[in-house]
Design a protein around this nucleic acid. Structure first.
Lengths: 347, 347
DNA sequence: ATGAAAGCGCTAACAC
DNA sequence: GTGTTAGCGCTTTCAT
């Protein structure tokens, strides 16, 4: 006989009830901590014992069907292989699982359309709520879901398409700290390679760059900024070549660590040394960024904490309805390593 | 009114049936491709139209309750933040989602006990099958699940506790290639820092090391091998210090890339240069291993393909019962980079 | 070709 | 304190 999916038939609540000599309803009450008080202590014991003996596990589908709650939460990430996202997922998962929720991860592969499909698929699975780490500034899928009342919290990236609880980190302060560091070292010709402007992180960091550069009195020439098409090593390299073809920065502020890695590659390719000829600053502080050559100076973002906070927000929503306070911005920290130094000629 | 979990009430099959002017049973048949032939074409059209109009999404819990199939698969990984595992998950997810399955990821945090809990939790969720990437050689939880007939496929790590379909990569050939490379360069005093022996990868690679070393005529002194307590940078560093205290290897073969990174750190700490003084070889070829200083020579393991193959095996099991062929071993490839060179004195 | 009805395993409203 | 009953949304016999 072929193994039935799920394996050996599981004991059902009725089995437990029969073995304990009570009715299924009573068994249900005995097993549920919330309703356990309505049942005699002796019965509780008997039922518990029977359940243990039969290795009873409540069927969450049946329960969900009845209670209209699945205790499942969907988490949508653009790319699980991007070291940025696993910590977010783990931070969220820890909080959620502690509250009895199971996490379903969907990977959109950085594809806008697949985000919509993922949301739809997860909703079809009757998840109780959604954590979205893949939002773009203009995000139809998120807007639709929010309009339809789906409990949904954004993490890492914001959107302008909907008023929805969001947990991000402080891009402005991150950029400010990075720039302050570079300016203090004596840099004035600072190149900027922001991420795509259709993502909130790309735009906000680019804005912050302009703002703080003019405040700090650095050069703000248009040819010192080249937008990257994606947050990737390759796109970073492409942008770095363009930048170095049209300007002579003594330092480059990269939109994120991947872009910074691309910059490092291009510098090597052109015979430029880092940090002697050009300083480089990344963003995020992914794993192993301290092992690069030179170790990357970068802005550390508390990804796990962001995931955890977003999960908390979602749990609160699930428990008490939509939260009022809508945006949580976590502080970041500049980690100075070997990729930044005083400029050659002293600026 | 508080938003109901899951958002706006979803249209139900009955709603669709009513709108199409048919019975729910008929609507069900019309919507299911398999039973669609039993229904008049006109009805199919009407029902489909009604479904579209109401944005009908079948409730997978209700369906699952009836059919005893959830189209969910659990994937258990030891640590999602370890860059090794996301590719495995993605490879699996791609195959599974194409077949209509949803993936639930559980992270055991490298904790044996939590593996058992994860399996239990996933089974309580009535997943149709399990992909386990966290197995240890002696794995009670896996043994139990298999005995109970749970469709379960191992990936990346084997177990000796149960006869269960497994997809791994060719550890012996990987070690052989690495050793051949080192021996050809002229190394004879080759240190080995295997991963923990309670994991199949740790043991198999250690065995392969001994086997091929004696075949290739290298030194096989006990003080040249130090087992790492875990697959981590820290454990690698600890083991490397021990190794360098008790022997003078001209090359070190690390149990995996994290361990190799630890070795690189310790070499730097002791003023030894890589590869001039000591060559280092890693294992896995995780992201960014080509960006280390020096770029790491390592054995590339096809993680995504392993995940995909494991998923295939599981799907076949789900469709046709337990597969006969039980172990699939994928080929690996040595990637030579800058961390290996001829030894100082010529060996 | 379609309607009727039973029931998956569970919970909750209602008896007693 | 416990049994009874109904029903969550769906599939699937069984009639017709």
């Amino acid at each position: 006989m072929a193994a039935r999916p799920g394996g050996t038939r599981h004991a059902t609540l009725k089995d437990v009830a029969e073995r304990a000599g009570v009715h299924a309803g009573t068994a249900s009450r005995a097993l549920n901590p919330a309703t356990q008080g309505l049942v005699s202590e002796a019965t509780v014991r008997a039922v518990r014992e029977a359940a243990k003996a039969l290795d009873y596990r409540p069927n969450s589908m049946a329960r969900g069907l009845k209670t209209n709650k699945t205790f499942m939460v969907g988490v949508i990430v653009p790319d699980l292989s991007n070291p940025l996202f696993p910590p977010i997922v783990r931070g969220a998962e820890e909080v959620l699982s502690r509250a009895g929720y199971t996490t379903i991860i969907a990977d959109t592969d950085n594809d806008r359309e697949r985000e919509g499909e993922s949301i739809a698929a997860l909703r079809a699975r009757q998840v109780d709520g959604l954590l979205v780490a893949s939002a773009s500034r203009d995000d139809e899928a998120v807007r639709t879901a929010v309009e339809q009342g789906v409990p949904l919290v954004l993490v890492n990236r914001r959107t302008e398409s909907a008023n929805v609880p969001t947990v991000t980190s402080d891009d402005r302060s991150g950029i400010e700290k990075a720039l302050e560091h570079l300016v203090r070292l004596g840099h004035t010709a600072i190149g900027h390679l922001p991420g795509p402007a259709h993502l909130s992180t790309g735009l906000e960091r680019a804005r912050a760059f302009r703002h703080h550069m003019s405040e700090l009195g650095g050069t703000l020439a248009p040819e010192l900024t080249v937008e990257c098409s994606t947050y990737s090593v390759d796109a970073g390299a492409v942008a770095a070549r363009t930048l170095l073809d049209q300007a002579e920065p003594t330092a480059i502020l990269a939109g994120n660590d991947q872009i910074a890695v691309g910059v490092l590659d291009v510098l090597r390719e052109r015979g430029l040394r880092c940090p002697e000829d050009v300083s480089v600053v990344g963003y995020n502080d992914m794993t192993f960024m301290d092992k690069l050559s030179p170790p990357l100076t970068t802005v550390r973002v508390p990804h796990a904490a962001m995931g955890a906070e977003a999960a908390q927000l979602l749990l609160r929503w699930l428990a008490e309805g939509p939260p009022a306070a809508n945006v949580l911005t976590l502080p970041v920290e500049l980690v100075v390593r070997g990729s930044t130094a005083r400029p050659r000629a002293g600026g």
